[in-house]
Design a protein around this nucleic acid. Sequence first.
DNA 1: GTGAAGGGCCAC
DNA 2: AAACGTGGCCCTTCAC
Length: 605
Amino acid sequence: MEIYFELIRDGAALARACGELAGKAFLGFDVETTELDPYRGDVRLVQLSDGANTKVIDLKEFAGGEWGSSSGSRSGSSTSVLRANPELAPLRELLSSTKSVKIAHNAKFDTKWVRHHLGCEVGAVYDTYLASVLISAGEGERRHGLADLVQFFLGRTLDKSEQVSDWGAETLSQSQIEYAAKDAAIMTELREKVHERIVADELEQVLALENACVMPIAEMELNGFYIDKGRWREQLEKVTKVQVKAAEELQFMLSAGVAQASLFGAPTINLDSQAQVTDALVGLGIPMPNSTRAWELQPLAEEYPVVAKLLEYRGVAKSISSFGENILEFIEPATGRIHADFRQIGAPTGRFACSKPNLQQIPHEPEYRRCFRAPDGKMLVIADYSQIELRILADFSEDRNFIEAFESGQDFHSATAAQVFGIDAKDVTPDQRSFAKRLNFGVVYGLGASRFAQMAGLSLSEGESTLRKYFATYPKMDEWLRNQSKSVLTERSARTKSGRLARISFDANDRSSVGAAQRYAKNMPIQGTSADILKRALRLLHDDLRGTSGKLVNIVHDEIIVECDKAEADETVKKLASAMLTAGQEFVGKVPIKVDIHTADEWSK
DNA sequence: GTGAAGGGCCAC
DNA sequence: AAACGTGGCCCTTCAC
């Protein structure tokens, strides 16, 4: 494929080029960088294309003599020079303009580099990667690389071999520049084909939601989350002491069950090996369940101190391995903060996934959460949706009793207990409330009677009758859940309120496969609508925080954490609460939305 | 040595 | 038999 492109190397040419592209509705957009992490490299090229006319901008020419940090030294970074260079103003204006939509593949990457190194937002984003993920809707092995999409949607082959070439070179080769130009030039055509499928699958609304969320997430990753190293190490030392002691004691208790003690004492058992631990426990005459999972071992812990000790050891071992020194290794030297990787469509339901490290699975205990704190002079604003999934289920099902339980404003699980047991809310016992709570959570996951009975310590028939009573209290909820179960058999799909689609395949001859599909069809619209709401809130928040000290620093499914100047805390609380309530009301119209929000020095409830 | 699978467990 | 949804990370085990 021959394309026309222009290599831009000076301010006058850049101003002219940006003028040419400024009126276009869609622009292919790409960057080439010397590293993968914007804090550790430089942007070499920015490419913009309307499909026929492609501009390749060599930022090295705009960085004075400061360009070239790819050797690793921070002093050579061009960031501050590029940000301050007035010759780049037309590029910043074009990129941040919302008049032309910038089409990029995995736009989070490109927008992060632009945000950090050029100092501006990317105004309107169309992400072909996210679009492709939405279209595949959790089904099939289709890959989502740019070359894969070009092959699938355009039937052409895109050569990506230059992607990993040296973008820090003094002079770029013709092949490198042509590759860079092609990547941007192909985007408008690709978008058209991709969008045909988006329209055909009725995914326009959810794609708009996702595209609008790219910039907020890019900024959140750049912002990072501050962690207090000292506090973290203190906690780690404490737990390590406990672990050493627990390991010694457990080793001693287990070795009593090992048949032959060697001359040098009992052989060492690897306490992290289920196999070895199980053998030792069997040797001690303990009736072992099918697995050594905590919930299976729990009932044995009272009778056998060694089992209790194993559980204690497991707990601290997990803390040290998953939440130990390794977390500190993710602190970026340039910022002193943790910049985790958020995958915007981490699950087919639309939920985020987070890794390196996973900030969505930090233990809830204050000893851990308090390590994530506001730096001096700053404040954290912490907000989460109250019972959002149950409210979404209430909204889907339109069940009158269910909705009234929320409208009453009282403790929701107590309200459920009162309705199920036909008593006054003030007479609900802690046991009854606990029952109701487990039922409320369970139905969201498609809970069955046998699992509920086991969980609540009831016989199967008791479990069944309690579940019957529950569904008799909320008949329309029962009806909605049953309908999801039924319709998935023919539709083989489910959708959230935003129209997010999950294709659901199953083996009709396999009961467990059908059961799993039915549970998923009940859960996906609920979990996924919660994700829709969070994403909408992030966009509203992003626009509302612009120009303030407020920075998005973490999200955990139904929780948003913003860091801001102490002096702006009250204002930030208002903005965050408003964004979350508005987003909730957009998708949930029949049930009140509640947001719990507070300010704190540290991440705690 | 590297990588995949499986068990286990953290979050919502 | 199977058994309530979504992830990621750590460990051991086992194949290459």
